[in-house]
């Protein structure tokens, strides 16, 4: 069970109308690994995530989960597959008219037969797991951005998903909070055994969490590297990938430590 492919993307082309964003994407995400989708701004990372979670239909190619083609499946099966996803959106995307506990409870109310006090208990447990014990009755507007993100994670975990998707988890967080979120992610992966797909361009975070990664390039309109980021850093010959992973040469190729806090992932020239 350790090394089988959980998500398989085969020959995927993403397009908005006639405008092709990325083509010929082929990769597999193994069960229980943390897979990072990286690349510069505007290369289609978030769009790829939208394709993976079924919000957008591929222009060509297939995406399969556990060997089942998502878009070939019937509506009901598709819904069942989607229910095994948990998604953390960029800003948390908490429903602002509900408290944190109600936010986490909504999917449980929808899909389980549990009674209200037990749902409440489960919601409190999920919030405790992300370090928000005691904040059950707060509204999203009353908490900070980092807390909103963690609450979003609690909601994503509500139904014990098999796959967790993260859209830029560290965007807008200070380096310490972003590091804590990375640690939390690793802990959750180890204990839940979930497959985790992360879209990010935060170098520190990429090196800290990724088992495997795909690099999308806006100019080439396709993926130009696939593999463990540390290996890529040591071995990649493509100048674009090297440039990205070393922050435009400002970081020694020997390794990313110490973590450089908030890299914004753009192709900076050396200052």
């Amino acid at each position: 069970m350790e090394n089988d492919a959980h998500i398989v993307v085969d020959n995927l082309t993403m397009a908005y109308g006639d405008f092709v964003l990325q083509r010929d994407l082929t990769f597999a995400v193994r069960r229980g690994e943390i897979f990072v989708i990286m690349g510069g701004s505007g290369c289609g990372k978030s769009t790829l995530l939208k394709h993976l979670i079924g919000l957008r239909r591929p222009a060509r190619g297939t995406i399969s989960f556990n060997g089942r083609d998502y878009w070939q499946a019937e509506e009901r099966d598709r819904e069942r597959i989607t229910r095994t996803f948990g998604v953390l959106y960029q800003g948390g995307a908490l429903w602002s008219s509900l408290t944190l506990a109600e936010n986490v409870a909504l999917p449980l109310e929808e899909y389980t037969e549990l009674t209200a006090p037990r749902i409440r208990k489960l919601a409190a447990l999920k919030l405790a797991l992300v370090g928000l014990k005691g904040f059950e009755d707060y509204y999203p507007a009353q908490i900070s951005g980092g807390m909103a993100k963690r609450a979003g994670l609690a909601r994503a975990m509500a139904l014990d998903p098999e796959i967790l998707f993260f859209d830029e988890p560290s965007a807008g967080l200070d380096p310490i909070s972003s590091r804590l979120l990375d640690d939390l992610l690793l802990q959750l992966r180890d204990s839940l055994g979930a497959t985790i797909v992360v879209v990010t361009h935060e170098l520190a975070s990429i090196f800290a969490i990724a088992d495997n990664a795909v690099f999308l390039d806006a100019a080439a309109k396709t993926m130009i590297a696939l593999g463990n980021p540390k290996t890529l850093l040591a071995e990649a010959t493509n100048p674009v990938v090297r440039n990205f992973l070393t922050r435009g040469g400002s970081m020694p190729p020997g390794g990313p430590t110490p973590p450089s806090g908030a890299g914004d992932g753009k192709h900076h020239k050396t200052i």
Binding site: G131, K133, G134, F135, D137, L192
Partner: peptide, 17 residues
């Protein structure tokens, strides 16, 4: 590990309304 995590962060003082 999850049980440890759930007990790890103490409730922030004054958080409960």
């Amino acid at each position: 590990a999850l049980l440890r995590l759930a007990h790890a962060t103490p409730e922030r003082a004054g958080a409960r309304r």
